[in-house]
Structure formats: structure tokens, C-alpha cells
Design a binder for these strands. Structure first.
Lengths: 342, 342
DNA sequence: TTGTACGCGTTATCAA
DNA sequence: TTGATAACGCGTACAA
């Protein structure tokens, strides 16, 4: 027996009413008396009816799904605890609402645009999360053009019709610089993240601002790329160049962790000769020698709030004009052993 | 102007044929002469028609999407390069076929079952990837029950109707043990992955087998859990207990990397006093001190083959009875600096 | 090749 | 206000 799944018509027949009445009753809409409503609900329960998602999607022109397009190099994604945590947060909200998450991983800018267009053309999702915002991010205009709702993680540097869910990286970096300055460091350098990313830029900016606020001369900034290889190269330049810094603030943990090896090879002791700080608080950060002082953000909470916000936008609860940004608690400093007085 | 999207009826009208003819023509099916077919194709192109995914999904009862339910702790996912790589491989295949990937991250066994059931009930996906297979994995029976096609990554330890895509972990571990034995190590220990995972068990088994093959006494095995904390604890037990090993084979990189700190704290030099090997070749592995000897598998290729296989199962191209397993090249040894003669 | 029923829930229209 | 009827979304499949 194939046990055909009961449809709304079956329920209607069973309850002795029309299809339309069933739809109203099941969606809690006015238009049916409470007693027939109950009869319909009973019939539905008895038959074990559950809505056919595809039929609903067709008739309402909704996908009941949200999209996430990840354009980072997968190597880079693997070293970052952000994505799994963020997605776990998103998932928590979506599970409650019977929504799904459609994930795309793309490896080129062309594929990225194509990815969003395909998601929109096929009506695969009702909205998307815009992560890893870049300078003059072309996706803002793209999504406006194709009419796909979105929320951005942090605020873009271009006019945007989309609400932003903000988790400010800067206080974390500032706290690190203050911590180092408080220990007596004056020659503090920074290894940044890859240029186009707004969060990388924000961290660099926060570094510069915090240095100024601490009354210190601007520190050297070496470009990094969030990878271990990039962190190693940048660290090597800093430690072998003139005016060796006594502390380095890294834009992420992986780069900071790679510095431990460079220091060991060059005979530079951490933290005695060199203090280092990371960003992310990866699983490993607390289990290296010396344990890494870093900064932790609530990526999971970010995912939850972003998901709720995006669903609200889709449901029209948030006016696109009065873009209401939501701010989360900023990243917090985790003091460990990789920092000490110079 | 809302520019209603052209439907198949519009195309039919434009080409002066029936809806059915259009459907045949666009799907390259027989039933229309090649000239009317061309006329229809021209009309479709002129109107800028593209199929309405939702309507197609409803009438064919297909989702045109595949599912991936990740039941690992998100903390654990973040430290593992497997998922992003695997997903990138999957994505490559799906993009070509206009399929989507629906991702679910769950944090409890109950949520896991509910996740699969929801995916099936809502017809969200046409099939799923079964990753992180466990002992007597209940998902095999669950998926059979709900009739959701699947492919498993590696072969389960219970009867399965699903094809397996195999990437054997064991040769990688065996190569590590042979390498260490070749260097003269005899007291080799193993820090395993968490019990229920079949890949963790396979690695432990491979370790035991390789030790026997090398003519060595069975090495000590300490349970790990793939996390840095677990790796640290296990390493500490091994290095402070009796009969300290001269080499440790870890079931993953994160645990091996955490050993570097333990060794440093105990004054154990790597590799002089202790050789260590990892598994995964994470980004950081080559950038610690000393660089980690480990094993690398082609997770991206795994994703590609798994996706192709799953689509073939869904399309009925693979007979469920004659489960045809596909084997990929096993993981390869990456020799670096964390191993040397005892 | 054509015409049309079908998949299934939503919603506008209309009668009671 | 309650509820029935029918149109709608759009492509597929089968009888004619």
C-alpha cells in the first residue's frame, strides 16, 4: 500500500466542508465558525494531514527557505569557527518555523553573481544573508536589482535598503590594544585581513584608532589574508624587519597561531619577547603554547538574530525604508598567556 | 510594470502550439517535429522564458535539492576542513544541474531524527548525504522507513540499501605507522576519535593493524574526541603515565596540534623526544613548530562523487539492489617535521 | 500534436 | 458572518 498522503480535499470530505473552509481553519483565519473549525482540525489530525510544502510554495510564491552564499575560499572557511556557529544559530530559528537553509559555496566572483541570480530565478529562497561584506559590495545592487530581500552582517559602505545585524569587531581589537598598551607595549604592529573584506578593514581601523587613543605612534600594519601561510609571511616580515614590534595584533586566530612557529624559529620568545593576540577564539587558541589571548564573538547569536530579522523583512514586518539595524554585544577579550609586559 | 514572468502558456500562444507541445520541445522529448520544436525554442528565447521551479517541483513531486544534516557539535565542525571542502565539491556538481543544497545543523540526536523527517515530510530534498556514520547508525533504518534516498560516506556497519562512496582512512594511518616504525619507533601510541564515529573506529583499527603488521606490540590507545581539549587531556595522560611512548598517532590534526603545547609544558621536545602525526592536513598543520606530519584526503573530490552518485540514485540510474560502491584514492601521507627517529 | 486532467493549497467571488 | 465554488499558480502526463 502506497498510503497516499491525505490532501486538503480529503480533510474537507472527512469534515463535510469545502476545501476553502479547511484552508481557512488550518491557517487560523476568520471565516469559519469555531465549531466547524474544530471539526476540521479534528479531521486533519485524524487523517494525519500535513500541508504539502510544494503546493503551498507554488500557490503562495514563497520558498520558505533562506539562502546563504559563501564566496570565501573553502580552505579559508575551514579554519574559521564563524560559519558553523552562525549556521547553527540560523538553524535554530529556521527549525521552529519550518524554514530551510539553502547553502551555496562559490569559488569565483562570476559564480557568486550567478549563484544569487539562480537562487532568485528559481525562487529557491525568500531572502539571503549577506556575509563577508566587501568594499563597495556589488551584491547590494545586485540583490536590489533582482528583488531579493536580504540582511547584511554589519553595515555596508554603500547605501543599502537592507537591515543590518551588527556585531562590532572594533571593541575587541580596541580591548586588545588597550590591554597591550596597559602592559607597557608601545611598538605594536597589526597583521590585517584581506583588503576587500569590510570586517578586515574595520579591524585595521580599530587598531589604528586604538593606537591613537592610547597615545601611541601608529603601529606597522602588514597585510595578511586570514590564512596560516599569509600570517607566517607577515609575521616573518615584522620580526626580521627594522624596528621589531614587541606585540602584534592579528586579525584572526589562524594567523596569530602561525606566528608561534615563526617566533620559535627565530628564537623570539612569546610572550617575553613578543606578545601576540588573535581574533575568533578558535578551538585551538586555548590549547597552544602559550595559550592565545584573543577575542570571542557570539556567532551563534548573530545567526539567530540575522535569521529572525530576515524573516521579519520577508514577512514585511520591517519597513524597508526605516531600516532598523540590530546591534549585538561586541566581541569580548579572552585573556590568556600570549601577552605579557615587554 | 510588474512584468509578469512568461509561462509555458505564453510560449505556446506565441509559437501557436499547445502547452503540451511546448513542454515536450523544451525538455527535448520526442513528440514534436524538429521545425515546430525550433519555433517553440525561438518563442521561449524571445519571451525570456525560464521554467518555474516551483511548478515543476509540484507536478513532478521532486525537490531538485539534496540535503546534508550535520549532527556534529558546531565547535567541532569549525576545526575540520572536511565540511567546507566536501560542500564545495557537492556544489560544483549541483550548480551544473540546477540543484540546490539544503543544509541542516542539529545539536541533539532527537533533533537529528526530526531533521530528516522534516526534510522528507516537506519534500525539501530528493536525497541526503549520510556523513559521520556511527556504529549501528540509526539513520540507515530511518531513511529506509521514510523512503528518502541516500548515499553514505564510507560503508556502514549495518546492512544498507544505499550506495557508499568510499574514501578509505586506513591507508593514511597505516602509512603513518609504517613511517614511524621505519624511523625506529616501537612505542607508538594512538589518540583516537570519539567512539561512535565509524571513521574514528576505522582509524583506531588501522592503527592496531599497522602496529601488528610492523611486528610491534599493540600501542596504547587513549580516547580523544577530536577537540583540542580532548587531545590535550589524552596527550597529558600518555606523556605523564608509565611507559611513555616515543610517538603518537592522532586521529585528527586538532588533537595533534594541541599536543605541541602539552609537550612544551612538560619539557618534551618534538620530534626529538616525541614524534607526532595528525590527520586532515588543516591549514595550520604546515605552519606550526614543528610542522605537522599528517595525512590528507580529497574531501572536495569526495563531495563531487557523492553528489553524482546521489543524483544517479535519485534518477534511478543506480539499482538499489546492486549497490555499487565507489572508491576514491585514499588519504596520502604528508611528511613534515614533527616526526623523526626516537 | 492537441486538449485536458492533475498535483495541492490559497484566495477571490458569491450565495446563504 | 459562514461557507461553498471556482480560479489560480505552472508544468507534466496521458488520452484522444
Amino acid at each position: 500500500m502506497t498510503a497516499r498522503r491525505p490532501t486538503i480535499s480529503d480533510v474537507a470530505r472527512h469534515a463535510g466542508v469545502s476545501k476553502g473552509a479547511v484552508s481557512f481553519a488550518l491557517n487560523g483565519r476568520a471565516g469559519v465558525s469555531s465549531e466547524t473549525r474544530q471539526r476540521i482540525l479534528d479531521a486533519a489530525a485524524e487523517l494525519g494531514w500535513s500541508p504539502n510544502h510544494r503546493a503551498r510554495a507554488l500557490s503562495t510564491s514563497r520558498a520558505f527557505a533562506l539562502g546563504l552564499v559563501v564566496a570565501r575560499d573553502p580552505e579559508l572557511v575551514g579554519a574559521d569557527p564563524f560559519f558553523p556557529m552562525f549556521i547553527a544559530g540560523v538553524e535554530k530559528v529556521l527549525a521552529e518555523r519550518d524554514q530551510a537553509l539553502v547553502l551555496q559555496v562559490v569559488t569565483s566572483p562570476a559564480a557568486e553573481e550567478a549563484g544569487y541570480r539562480r537562487l532568485a530565478r528559481d525562487g529557491r529562497v525568500d531572502g539571503v544573508f549577506l556575509v563577508d561584506l566587501r568594499e563597495a559590495d556589488p551584491r547590494i545592487a545586485l540583490l536590489e536589482e533582482i528583488g531579493l530581500p536580504a540582511v547584511t552582517l554589519n553595515r555596508p559602505d554603500v547605501p543599502t535598503p537592507f537591515p543590518a545585524v551588527i556585531l562590532d569587531d572594533r571593541p575587541g581589537i580596541a580591548a586588545e590594544v588597550r590591554h597591550l598598551a596597559g602592559l607597557g607595549h608601545t611598538a605594536i604592529a597589526h597583521v590585517s585581513g584581506p583588503e576587500p573584506f569590510l570586517h578586515a578593514i574595520a579591524r585595521s581601523q580599530a587598531f589604528a584608532d586604538a593606537m591613537a587613543e592610547a597615545g601611541l605612534p601608529p603601529g606597522r600594519v602588514e597585510p595578511g589574508d586570514f590564512t596560516a601561510a599569509g600570517g607566517r609571511a607577515a609575521t616573518h616580515r615584522l620580526l626580521t624587519g627594522p624596528d621589531r614590534p614587541t606585540a602584534i595584533v592579528y586579525a584572526n586566530d589562524v594567523m596569530a597561531l602561525s606566528a608561534i612557529a615563526v617566533a620559535a624559529e627565530l628564537g623570539v620568545r612569546i610572550p617575553d619577547d613578543l606578545s601576540i593576540t588573535g581574533f575568533d577564539d578558535t578551538d585551538l587558541a586555548g590549547y597552544v603554547h602559550p595559550a592565545l589571548t584573543t577575542v570571542r564573538a557570539d556567532a551563534r547569536g548573530w545567526g539567530e538574530v540575522a535569521a529572525r530579522t530576515l524573516l521579519a523583512v520577508i514577512d514585511g514586518e520591517i519597513d524597508e525604508q526605516q531600516v532598523a539595524d540590530t546591534a549585538l554585544a561586541p566581541a569580548e577579550l579572552i585573556l590568556r598567556r600570549s601577552t605579557s609586559a615587554p
